[in-house]
């Protein structure tokens, strides 16, 4: 038990050190990612000069707060390079090292992501704090403790969901060596159905119910809507349970795909 914990701790530490090498690039990249928010501020500002009242329960300030909060959700759920990395490892044979070492690939990469994210938050905290401070006027008053707890819980699960979802796509590489085009389509759907583009409850009735069942909503929309108090009480509890369901679903899918994939896999050369 102790030895195992030590192994995983070592892995985490190595990954942390590896990640810290590019901290300057990281911080700048994070700040750049907020640029589209500027257009959003002006776009919605302009829209609301012609709209009386609110849109689907969101007023102008809610919209901006929503976009900023969805960035927080994405900071937890987005896994840049995960799926393409896994499929590349399968294609070029690097995956072999996981087959001969007593380390589980999905678990190892999970820890690597945890390390990646920890470093990311450490470095990204400053740009995030700066932007949120500049935009503080857009936010409603702080929600109560229970809402904040639900928000944090939804973020942690968003991380796990994002990880297992993308890892499952990457493991697809055992069957189709090239998954770039699949990734493209996934990213497109992700952009739209995670709520990165607009709050999902803006959609008219039949669609608004459908989008609130699918897993992608948890990657950006759900945490933001929770913080803004758009999802409360029973709906909030249901939402969190459904999120847990999707996490477990994709976790099992990963295990299944990996065990089947390894059986299919054949490595050549030295």
């Amino acid at each position: 038990m102790h030895a195992k914990a030590l192994t995983w701790w070592t892995i985490l530490r190595i990954c942390l050190e590896e990640r810290l090498v590019y901290r300057g690039d990281f911080a700048l990249g994070t700040l750049m990612r907020f640029l589209p928010i500027i257009t959003q501020i002006f776009l919605w500002g302009s829209i609301f000069t012609a709209v009386k009242g609110d849109i689907a329960g969101y007023n102008y300030h809610d919209f901006i707060a929503y976009y900023l909060l969805s960035m927080v959700g994405r900071a937890f759920s987005s896994m840049p390079g995960l799926a393409s990395g896994i499929s590349r490892d399968i294609r070029d044979g690097t995956v072999k090292k996981f087959l001969i070492q007593p380390i589980d690939m999905v678990g190892f990469l999970f820890l690597m992501r945890v390390a990646h994210k920890l470093v990311y938050y450490g470095v990204a905290l400053a740009p995030f704090a700066l932007v949120f401070y500049l935009c503080r006027g857009f936010f409603p008053p702080m929600p109560d403790g229970a809402t904040i707890a639900a928000f944090v819980l939804s973020l942690v699960m968003a991380f796990m969901l994002g990880y297992f979802l993308e890892a499952a796509i990457g493991l697809y590489g055992f069957w189709f060596l090239e998954i770039n085009s699949l990734m493209w389509i996934y990213m497109l759907f992700n952009f739209f159905f995670s709520g990165h583009m607009f709050p999902l409850d803006m959609l008219p009735p039949p669609f608004s119910y459908i989008v609130q069942l699918q897993p992608l909503q948890y990657l950006a929309y759900f945490p933001a809507a929770v913080w803004l108090g758009k999802i409360e009480g029973a709906a909030l509890r249901q939402g969190l349970w459904l999120e847990l369901f999707w996490v477990i679903f994709f976790f099992l899918l990963c295990r299944f795909a990996y065990s089947r994939g390894v059986r299919r896999y054949s490595g050549f050369g030295g």
């Binding site: 302009s46 829209i47 000069t49 012609a50 583009m197 959609l203 008219p204």
Partner: peptide
Amino acid sequence: GFYELIFQYTDTLGY
């Protein structure tokens, strides 16, 4: 689709 959605709620993009 996104723009169509916006124009469900408003007639013009800005007053």
